[in-house]
């Protein structure tokens, strides 16, 4: 029996005596547990629960560092009337959509190849993990240089005589957003790759052996056996990708600050960030944050519901 079962209320328990506990003894018996949990909860309250409630409350106020004035739905009215909001959500939808396609293709291809390669599998794996270790800011910084007017891409284009294609990739409204989406191409090296690889490697040998005896080709084995077996990981990664790109804004912040123009590569997270940094309008920022949180929560709950339904039908 588990110790946790044993020390259930009213049952004899070690090490705090074997009699039914009185109130004082109850405090002595359990107090220690609460005391040990206290630091965790202190931080959870200070940096999760309080900010969450404060953000929701202040989204209905005018809020700067000095004062708070109740303004009802003004921030939300302003947010929904602001053309920048629509542009930000449109940009974000494009990024999320593209990354959904990316996560189901390139890292999976990389993982499948590394899983099936016979020579140097270990080193291939290390090679595709290594770039994850390089801080994202450094990666974005290098890509920013590549996209520059005198950057790597234009240099290569000039080198092969395609001068007319050169441009300021991040300054041109036609290419800026796509340039940001393309950061990290071919998107193999990453956490997604690791998850796919772990999933592929955990497929039991017997399943694959059966297919081999039947004389199935490698490609058929992949599509008919391996792919269906890692479907849970695919849907998990799809979900995590959606949630991640709904809120992330480091690349636009570092590369374009939301430009060209005011909304070329603006996303909701960056819109929120700018409401603090540029305008110190914390109430407006809170409204964006609250909206973003609501959407994220809805997506997470939808995901849970879908998964539960899938489990029932299977």
């Amino acid at each position: 029996m588990r110790q946790s079962e044993r020390s259930a209320v009213g049952e004899p328990s070690f090490p705090y005596g074997q009699r039914r506990a009185g109130i004082m003894q109850g405090v002595r018996r359990y107090g220690l547990f609460y005391l040990l949990l206290a630091p965790t909860f202190l931080f959870a309250i200070a940096f999760y629960y309080y900010p969450l409630l404060s953000g929701i409350y202040h989204s209905f106020t005018y809020w700067d560092i000095k004062r708070t004035v109740w303004v009802g739905l003004d921030n939300y009215a302003r947010l929904f009337a602001d053309p920048a909001t629509a542009a930000a959500w449109r940009n974000m939808a494009l990024i999320v959509g593209s990354q959904m396609i990316v996560v189901l293709t390139f890292p999976l291809l990389g993982a499948a190849l590394v899983h099936h390669v016979r020579r140097g599998q270990y080193w291939w794996r290390v090679a595709f993990v290594l770039p994850i270790v390089v801080p994202a800011t450094v990666i974005v910084f290098v890509w920013r240089w590549f996209y520059g007017v005198d950057g790597g891409i234009n240099y290569l284009l000039r080198l092969v005589g395609m001068e007319e294609l050169t441009r300021a990739w991040l300054g041109d409204p036609a290419t800026a957003l796509w340039a940001i989406i393309f950061v990290g191409f071919p998107w193999v090296a990453g956490l997604n790759f690791l998850i796919y690889l772990a999933a592929l490697q955990s497929i039991p040998e017997e399943v694959l052996d059966a297919a081999r005896v039947d004389g199935a080709t490698a490609l058929r084995t992949f599509f008919q056996i391996e792919l269906p077996m890692i479907r849970p990981q695919m849907s998990l990664l799809l979900m995590l990708t959606i949630i991640y790109y709904l809120r992330s804004f480091d690349a636009p912040l570092i590369m374009t600050n939301g430009g060209p123009g005011t909304t070329g590569t603006l996303v909701p997270g960056l819109q929120m960030y700018r409401s603090i940094r540029d305008e110190l309008d914390l109430g407006y920022g809170s409204a964006i944050g609250t909206l973003l949180f609501g959407v994220l929560l809805a997506v997470s709950l939808l995901n849970l519901a879908i998964r539960q339904r899938l489990e029932k039908t299977v």
Binding site: L37, A46, P51, L52, L282
Partner: peptide
């Protein structure tokens, strides 16, 4: 209490940026 910790996984820090900023400033 454990549930109260688990749901933190569903609260990305990004959406808390503004109020946490105010907390640090204050």
């Amino acid at each position: 209490l454990f549930f109260a910790i688990m749901i933190l996984l569903f609260i990305p820090n990004t959406v808390l940026l503004v109020p946490t900023y105010q907390l640090i400033i204050s």
